[in-house]
Amino acid sequence: MDHIPQPFPTTRWSRIRFLREASGEEKRRALNHLLLRYRPALKTHLVCAMGFSPDKADDVVQEFIAGKIVEQDLVEKADQSRGKLRTLLRRALENCAMSVLRRENAQKRNPQNADVCSIERYEGPDPSENAPTDPFDAAWAREVIATALDQMKDYCLDSDRRDVWEVFRLRIMWPALDGRDPLPYGQLIQRFDLDSPSEAYNLLNTAKRIFRRHLRSVVGEYVESEEEIDDELRELRSVLSRSPALLDGDPT
């Protein structure tokens, strides 16, 4: 992953603003970071909401990134007062995907005139339909959690707190991801050589606090204020609770 080292996760640092102001290598890195964060969501949206095959979705995402995001500076021109970055990316991607379909359809019917537009080939569901949870949002939520955990792990290992990472993994991640029971308390105190419940409690709380900060940091990368971060966290929770099983899993 493209991890930008930080002593501790910062919040309220908008990468969009940074993208606008940066240049050269810094800008390239910031753009790359954004693409890493949103690429899975873009692809999932094409596969699950618009009916593209995974291979075709890869091609469309690539075209979207090269044409809209890089050449046309889509993100830098984004006006955050007019909506979330996620919404902007999703709509722009849908437009791009429709253009690709029209172009390919026109090429098939009239190879000499590739510019004739048609949407006859598009047979997927209407992406504007108000589904319980948009696949794009569901994929975004997964990416947020995965990135927060990546960053938490890096932070714990870099700061010589493997115990904090391990206790989070064994008590919280394991049960959530694998459905296993959390590491029993008796084994926990033996494994980490804890003298008293207050030490165990402190270790667990530290782990949760660090995860919480990293989660806020990741969610806060592309928004401006603490209030927006709180809104995004509520939405993250809501998206995860509403996602039906068919949207689960990596479309790749």
């Binding site: 899975p40 569901a138 939520a141 997964r142 959690i145 995965a146 955990l149 919280i172 991640m173 049960p175 959530a176 991801l177 459905g179 995860f211 989660l215 966290l233 993250l236 929770r237 998206v239 995860l240 609770s241 996602s243 099983a245 949207l247 689960d248 899993g249 990596d250």
Partner: peptide
């Protein structure tokens, strides 16, 4: 994380 049901991911949050 990509293989886990989303409702279970909510437990981490």
């Amino acid at each position: 994380i990509y293989d886990t049901e989303s409702r279970r991911l909510a437990r981490i949050v």
